Amino acid sequence: MSFLKLTDVTKFYGTTRAVSEVNLSVEKGEFVSLLGPSGCGKTTTLQMVAGFEAVSSGRIELDGRDITHAKANTRGLGIVFQTYALFPHMTVADNVSFGLEMRRCPKVERGERVKQALALVHLEAHAARYPRELSGGQRQRVALARALVIEPPVLLLDEPLSNLDAKLREEMQFELRQIQRKVGTTTVMVTHDQSEAMSISDRVVVMEAGRATQIDHPHRVYEHPGSRFISTFVGKANLLPGRIAAGNRVELGTLTVAAEDAGFRPGAAVLFSVRPEKLQLVEAGRGRIDGTVRERFFLGSQWMYAVTTPLGELTVLSPNDGRPALDEGHAAGIDWPDHCARLLPADEQVAA
């Protein structure tokens, strides 16, 4: 049985449908991320689970109990907000202890649990400090300790790392995942950061226009996107218009290539999708198609090339392996393994 279950959960603001019939089952101890651009409904979905927003229709269950219309303070969930929402006049220890005080936890037990929570996030030495005396990463860990100390059945994270700089954000991603695995708390996180969701989640829920358009393991979401939107939102993709030919072949203009069978009928219009890092630059005349390097960009560990070809402009990512980069204006061939190409519907639409 699913530990947290959403069934046809829908939210209207007046006549505007912000969330449309979301179905999601989260297992106990699982880390699930709601991923999507601004306005896709991910935060509203989290707020309905938390009880901060009323559900227009549908059902939310927690461990077999219907909490659809339960008040937020009766659900017992742990929440970390984007702004952390720490009390500035309280010490770190007092901030962490606050939820236990509200639950009338005995003082001796409360002190021990606060110590354990601070040890979990490596802030034992900062118990007497105030939030203003902490770095962004430390404040984030205090907020996490405050949420975990009450031992919630579900931990809800609302863009918890968005206020951190890039380097600290990457470090905190893995620390957050390590803490979650150690504690084993069922966790649902909202984020618009693809790398964040892909790196630390057991499953990812990609949301678009209020709908959950794909729910899958991170690797499958990336390698087998279910739509044009997902292929370009989760990573980058080269999309070429094509048409299905006989024998699981795809016609791309005058070029006919193989692609993974996606159940399209012969003659169907499709989009041929291949990730930039799956393309290989070879000598002109030795690939499937030739092109000319229009621009190049140095990304540190990679070079990104914009290559003009008869099929259109393709983006190619090549590792920075010490070999000289190709100059702009250089003629090159482009190749790719057949199993790396994906086929997507050419005329997909998502209802609002």
Rank of each mutant, 00 (worst) to 15 (best):
A18I: 10
V19Q: 02
V19N: 00
N23R: 11
L24D: 02
S25Y: 00
E27D: 13
V32L: 14
G36N: 05
G41I: 05
K42C: 00
T43E: 02
T43N: 04
T45N: 09
Q47F: 15
V49N: 03
A50R: 11
F52K: 00
A54Y: 00
S56W: 07
S56N: 03
S57H: 13
S57W: 06
R59L: 12
I60R: 03
E61T: 15
H69W: 02
K71F: 14
K71S: 15
A72E: 05
N73F: 15
T74C: 09
R75D: 11
G76Y: 06
L77H: 05
V80P: 02
F81Q: 04
T83A: 15
F87G: 06
H89S: 14
H89Y: 12
M90G: 06
A93W: 01
N95T: 11
L100R: 00
E101N: 11
R103P: 07
R104Y: 01
R104Q: 13
C105A: 10
K107F: 04
K107W: 00
E112G: 01
E112T: 10
R113L: 10
V114N: 05
K115R: 13
K115Q: 12
Q116Y: 02
H122D: 13
A127N: 08
R132E: 15
G136W: 12
R139T: 07
R141S: 07
V142Q: 01
A145M: 04
A145Q: 09
L148R: 05
I150A: 14
E151T: 13
P160K: 10
P160T: 11
L161R: 07
N163F: 03
A166Y: 09
R169S: 08
E171T: 13
M172K: 11
Q173D: 08
Q173H: 11
L176F: 02
L176V: 10
R177K: 15
R181I: 09
V183R: 06
V188W: 08
V188Q: 04
T191L: 08
E196G: 09
M198F: 04
M207K: 00
G210P: 02
R211S: 14
T213M: 12
Q214A: 11
D216Q: 10
H217G: 11
Y222W: 14
E223R: 15
E223H: 13
H224T: 12
G226T: 05
I230V: 15
V234D: 02
P241L: 01
G242E: 05
I244F: 00
E251W: 01
G253W: 12
G253L: 11
T254S: 14
A259F: 06
G263C: 09
R265F: 03
V270Y: 02
L271H: 09
P276C: 04
P276M: 02
E277Y: 06
V282Y: 02
I289F: 05
I289R: 07
D290S: 05
E295H: 14
F297V: 15
L299K: 14
S301I: 07
Q302E: 15
M304C: 11
P310K: 14
P310R: 12
G312F: 06
G312L: 05
L314G: 02
T315R: 15
V316F: 04
L317V: 10
P319C: 02
D321I: 12
G322I: 10
L326H: 15
D327N: 15
H330D: 15
